[in-house]
Amino acid sequence: MPSETPQAEVGPTGCPHRSGPHSAKGSLEKGSPEDKEAKEPLWIRPDAPSRCTWQLGRPASESPHHHTAPAKSPKILPDILKKIGDTPMVRINKIGKKFGLKCELLAKCEFFNAGGSVKDRISLRMIEDAERDGTLKPGDTIIEPTSGNTGIGLALAAAVRGYRCIIVMPEKMSSEKVDVLRALGAEIVRTPTNARFDSPESHVGVAWRLKNEIPNSHILDQYRNASNPLAHYDTTADEILQQCDGKLDMLVASVGTGGTITGIARKLKEKCPGCRIIGVDPEGSILAEPEELNQTEQTTYEVEGIGYDFIPTVLDRTVVDKWFKSNDEEAFTFARMLIAQEGLLCGGSAGSTVAVAVKAAQELQEGQRCVVILPDSVRNYMTKFLSDRWMLQKGFLKEEDLTEKKPWWWHLRVQELGLSAPLTVLPTITCGHTIEILREKGFDQAPVVDEAGVILGMVTLGNMLSSLLAGKVQPSDQVGKVIYKQFKQIRLTDTLGRLSHILEMDHFALVV
């Protein structure tokens, strides 16, 4: 994948999101292997301009796509893939009243899908469409860049269908997702969380590099694949309309690839034109409109599966009536509230959605109805927002919020430890010299600072030695090549209790 991002070429006709291997024109390309080798690009942008032909009021008969309808489940399912879809609609009884809503608040519980998330729908649909058009064949390999849930859905379907599955996901995604993927037989590649989507090191860039190296491999490409919004247009939206008897006044959905909100909203605009569509985008993402909503100094966020630093091709923002931004604290607070007060075992993005819903639905009156999409299960986040310690460490809970008995030293300040200034190293000294210094002084790690004293990161003896043994660096290389740029900081005025929580999850903390 090139470091400079080429513009994806656009073909003359058809839909841009065809499933299957992508040609340089962004659509299915038939021909000899030699032709494909000559024409197939190194990668295709996940934010390529959409060429979708959908228009409100256009006859369904003019759609270029294969459409399906929700099917009634048999008493005995032939395999677990038949437990994807037909998820329950559940009334939220307490939270709406707590925040003064007059309307009825309903939750579409997508964590009841077989793999635990709304992404099971698009995973199965992308595979079925690729099999139907002859792209996927027995023994082929599926590769997908994902925040985890699409990966789980694909790995689940691949396990049943017999495909090899490789999932490329950023490091910030939970260990629970990784464990589930491994249990399903998927191979996992992790990428830096802070890598831009168009960087060769991003999950998108690495996935395309693997595709170019592995024979008979395919990126189904949830960011561009029409099967993504079509899955929701054909099934999720129809289920909502049936469950609500066609009567709903507002739908609120958090947005990642945009397939969920695009597919549902398009069908609702056709069948229930008075329904307002509300999009939820986390602070630090750029999906919301108008652009002024996205202006923030924050560039990272903890909530998973929603928000991006690019506009995915499948996201149709014209069908969203209003956007709201959400933050991590309210997302996790509301997710825990949904679990504790409503018994809905949902993930953090569901918290984002409901946090926005109780604001947006203030305009609705008694007798009206708001539906929220709860995308995934708490299963993926047992060591994250479900953990009091994690919430404390991230600053989303305060010590006084917890009532468990603490040891005698818990409320003492870090400054009472009488710490001395640490050994520091410059980023320009060599790895070999740094190892000598650390061994001589008896230290395992040291902060790396520039000549102005600005902290650049941390270097550890173990990481340097393993990097040297693996051949990633040489003793003569500058130590700046092996620094940890993500590390926890703590102030002298913070409590030892807070430091204790940090050290339970990290090997060190830097006192500043």
Rank of each mutant, 00 (worst) to 15 (best):
P2H: 12
P2L: 14
E4F: 05
E4N: 12
P6C: 10
Q7Y: 13
A8Q: 11
V10I: 15
G11E: 10
P12K: 10
T13P: 10
G14M: 12
P16L: 14
H17F: 07
R18H: 15
S19Q: 09
P21I: 05
P21G: 05
H22F: 14
G26H: 07
L28H: 09
E29R: 12
G31T: 10
G31I: 04
G31C: 12
S32P: 10
P33W: 10
A38R: 09
A38F: 10
A38S: 12
K39E: 12
L42S: 05
I44A: 13
R45C: 03
P46D: 04
A48L: 04
S50L: 05
S50K: 07
W54S: 06
L56C: 11
G57Y: 08
P59A: 06
P59R: 06
P59S: 14
A60K: 11
P64F: 12
H65G: 01
H65Y: 05
H65F: 03
H66T: 10
T68P: 12
K72Y: 09
S73L: 12
P74R: 08
K75L: 13
I76Y: 09
D79E: 11
L81I: 09
L81D: 07
M89Y: 05
V90Y: 03
R91T: 11
R91L: 05
I92W: 00
I92V: 14
I95R: 03
I95C: 08
G96I: 09
G96F: 04
G96V: 03
F99P: 03
K102E: 09
C103E: 01
E104F: 02
L105N: 01
L106G: 09
E110H: 02
F112G: 02
A114P: 05
A114V: 08
G115F: 07
G115R: 08
S117Q: 05
S117G: 07
V118D: 03
K119Y: 01
R121E: 02
L124K: 11
M126Q: 05
M126I: 08
I127Y: 08
A130L: 04
A130R: 07
A130V: 07
L136R: 00
L136H: 00
G139T: 11
D140Y: 07
I143V: 03
E144N: 02
S147N: 03
S147P: 01
G148K: 06
N149M: 03
G151D: 01
G153H: 01
L154V: 07
L156A: 02
L156C: 02
V160A: 10
V160Y: 08
G162T: 04
Y163A: 00
I166T: 12
I167L: 11
P170A: 05
P170H: 01
K172F: 02
M173K: 08
S174P: 01
E176G: 06
V178H: 00
R182A: 05
A183Y: 01
G185K: 06
G185S: 00
A186L: 00
E187Q: 11
P192E: 08
A195G: 03
A195I: 08
R196S: 10
R196L: 10
R196Y: 09
D198N: 10
D198A: 08
E201S: 15
H203F: 05
H203C: 04
G205F: 14
V206M: 14
V206N: 03
A207D: 04
W208G: 06
L210G: 06
S217T: 09
L220W: 03
D221F: 08
D221M: 04
Q222Y: 00
Q222K: 04
A226K: 10
S227M: 07
P229E: 04
L230A: 04
H232V: 00
T235P: 03
T236C: 04
A237W: 01
Q242L: 13
Q243D: 14
Q243T: 14
D245R: 02
L248G: 03
D249S: 07
M250I: 10
M250A: 05
V252I: 13
V252F: 11
S254A: 06
V255F: 03
V255Q: 07
T260V: 05
I261C: 09
I261P: 01
T262F: 01
I264H: 03
K267F: 12
K267I: 11
K267W: 06
L268C: 02
E270P: 04
E270M: 06
G274A: 13
C275E: 00
R276A: 15
